[in-house]
Amino acid sequence: MTDLTSPFSQVPAGLPRRAFLRVAGASAATAGLVLAGCGKTDTPPVVNSNILYLGSTSTSAADVDAGLLNYFFLLKQLEAAFYQRVVDALPTDLPPAERAFFSDLRDHELVHRETLRYALGNRAYDAAAAQPLPFDFSSLTLTTRAGVLAAAQQLEDLGVAAYAGALRLVRTPDLVALVAKMSSVEARHAALLRDLRTPGSFAGDDVVVNAGVLQSVSLAKTPAQVIAEAKAFFLPIVVSTDLLPTA
């Protein structure tokens, strides 16, 4: 896949992709990954580390945005993998009326993931990876309706909070517009899952909050907060947001 013809030409292909990814000799050994996102002008990958750095030391708009898109992309990969796992082995106590929800959710996340991958082109953190990052779902109970709903709600609420906290950091208007189109669908997902779990909790006050002068707005989390909550899924890789912008 190339981004030479990408409409996202605001992210020029020629700029250094330094530090999108400084992964990971040890991870390659432990997880069977060979991840590299660096062209010949880039800093060589950091070896003997299993840290995946999202973002870049560059402050150009293109590099900042690519770092943030990689952050969203990683979360989408996580969600898509999660729903695929669920759809592959639906809990036996999931009523037939609720099964279609999960194939829809899986489809939406796949579409989001592929859209972001396309937007990133060869700037995707795993563009040169032999295989995608595996996710560790061993902390979840995926054999029961209750377990699946709890996990799905956690991921979707986290996704909504991630957009709420990080969309403001994206500098290219077309990319803000593109990601915003997905962010409200994420909120729809979250609302449905919450209602399935606890009827009437679609806009509970743990996720719809007052913040300063603002009332009834989505809870927002920084990339660091989001990744911290999701860190168990990335093991043995440690995802770092240190190179993402904070303002």
Binding site: V160, Y163, A164, L167, R168, A180, S183, S184, V185, E186, A187, R188, A190, A191, F202, A203, V208, L214, S216, V217, S218, A220
Partner: peptide, 10 residues
């Protein structure tokens, strides 16, 4: 944007 995602929940 964070009002708009609440509208989506509604």
């Amino acid at each position: 944007l964070n009002i708009h995602s609440v509208e989506a929940r509604h």
